[in-house]
Design a protein around this nucleic acid. Structure first.
Lengths: 199, 199
DNA sequence: TGTACATCAGTGAACGCGCGTTCACTGATGTAC
DNA sequence: TGTACATCAGTGAACGCGCGTTCACTGATGTAC
C-alpha cells in the first residue's frame, strides 16, 4: 500500500478534528465540504473514502468537540482543591477566552440549536457528549437529592452555562457581555448550591 | 396606484413576520430567500423592493421575534398575582410547548449562536430585543442589589433559560428532556432569588 | 364620460457561484514471480 | 535483483441544484385632459 497501515485512520481523525473547529466557528449549515476537507489538508473528492455522507462527519465532529471540552475542563477542575472544584468548573466555562474563541469552545454553546434541528445522528452524538460533561459536573454538586434530581440539575446548569455564554457572544456591547459572564457564574453557583426540595 | 397606500408597508410586515417564523424553524443560514418570500405569499423577485439585502430582513425578523416573545410572556405574567410573576415567567418560558414549537418561540433559544456569528445589524437587533425581555424580567427579581447587578443577573437568567430550552430541544430522550425543563425552572428560580452578595 | 398615459408592487428569467455527491483517473507503494 | 501487476488514498472534473442578486417586463390602478 501507498500509505502506512494507520494512515487512513489518522486522516479520518484529522478531518474530524479540523471539522470540529470549523463547524463551531462557522456553524453546521454555514460550512461546505470543500472547506472542511481543505482545513484537513485534503481535496473534497477524498471525503467519501472516509464518510458515507456529510451528516456522518457532522455527528462525529460534534461528539469529538464535546469530548475535547469536557477533557479540558476536567483537567482544570482537577487542579483545584476539592471544595473549589464546582466554582473552578463554572468560572472556567464562563471565562472571557471561552466566549471569544468559539471554534475551540463548547459545542453546546456553539451549535445546540442547529443540532436540535439536525438529523438523529448528530443529536445522538450531542446527547452522548453532553452526558459526558454532566458526568463531570454532577459529582461536584453538594450532597443530597435523588440521582434523578441531581442529574436533572446538572443538565439544567450545563444548559444555563451554555446559554449565558451564547448571550455574552451575541451581545455587541462588550461591557455588558463581560457583566453577563460574571452574573452567569453567580447564577450557576446559586443554582448548583440551592437546597434540594421535594423528592 | 395599483394598491392601497399602506399595501407595501403591510407586505413588508408580512414578510418580516413570516421570516421570523421560518428563520427560527430552519435557522438563518438554513433558509433561502425564495422560501422566505414564498412563505409571505410572494415571489422572490419582489424581495429587493422591500429590503436592500438579505441581512436586513434577518435583522428585522430577529428583532420582531424577540418582541413577539416578550409581549406574549408579558401577557401571561400579567395574569398572575404579583408575588407569583417571577415563577410564572420562568415556568412559561420552560414549558413543553415552548420546547416543541421552536418556530414561534424565543429567538435567543432558536438563533443565538447564528446571531453571534452574524453581521452587526442582526446582533444589534438581537441586543435590543434581549434588552426588552430583560426589562420584563428584572422588575420581577427580589428587591436589592445595584441596578447594574440586577440587570446583569436578569441577563444571566435569560441566557440560562434559553440554554436550558436548547438542551431540552437537542436531547432526543424525551423523558430526560422533560426533566431538564423541570430542573431548569428550579435552577432559574434559585438564581433569581439568591441573596445579593458583594457590591 | 372616455381615452391616453404614468405609476409601481410584483413576476420570473437570468447571472455567477458554491453546494453535496459521483466517478474516472493518478501515482506511490507492496507483492508475485 | 528486476519486472509486471494489484492496491487504494487522494485528485479534480463533472452532475444537477439552490443560493443571493439583478433586471426587463406585466398589469391593475389613478390621474390628466
Amino acid at each position: 500500500m501507498r500509505y502506512p497501515n494507520d494512515h487512513k485512520d489518522q486522516a479520518r481523525r484529522d478531518i474530524v478534528a479540523a471539522a470540529s473547529e470549523r463547524l463551531r466557528k462557522d456553524g453546521i449549515s454555514g460550512t461546505g465540504l470543500r472547506t472542511l476537507m481543505t482545513d484537513a489538508g485534503l481535496t473534497h473528492g477524498a471525503f467519501y473514502a472516509h464518510f458515507q455522507r456529510r451528516s456522518d462527519l457532522v455527528a462525529q465532529a460534534v461528539g469529538f468537540a464535546l469530548e475535547q471540552t469536557t477533557e479540558a475542563l476536567a483537567a482544570r477542575v482537577a487542579k483545584a482543591a476539592p471544595p473549589d472544584r464546582l466554582r473552578a468548573l463554572i468560572d472556567s466555562y464562563l471565562r472571557p477566552v471561552h466566549r471569544d474563541r468559539m471554534e475551540i469552545g463548547c459545542a453546546a454553546a456553539a451549535l445546540a440549536p442547529e443540532v436540535a434541528r439536525g438529523d438523529p445522528s448528530a443529536r445522538e452524538a450531542f446527547a452522548a457528549g453532553v452526558k459526558g460533561f454532566v458526568s463531570l459536573l454532577e459529582p461536584l454538586l453538594p450532597r443530597g437529592g435523588s440521582p434523578a434530581k441531581r442529574a436533572g440539575r446538572a443538565y439544567a446548569i450545563f444548559g444555563g452555562l451554555a446559554g449565558a455564554l451564547q448571550l455574552a457572544r451575541a451581545i455587541p456591547d462588550s461591557d455588558l457581555s463581560d457583566r453577563i459572564l460574571v452574573s452567569g457564574r453567580e447564577a450557576a453557583m446559586a443554582a448548583a448550591t440551592a437546597d434540594w426540595i421535594g423528592d
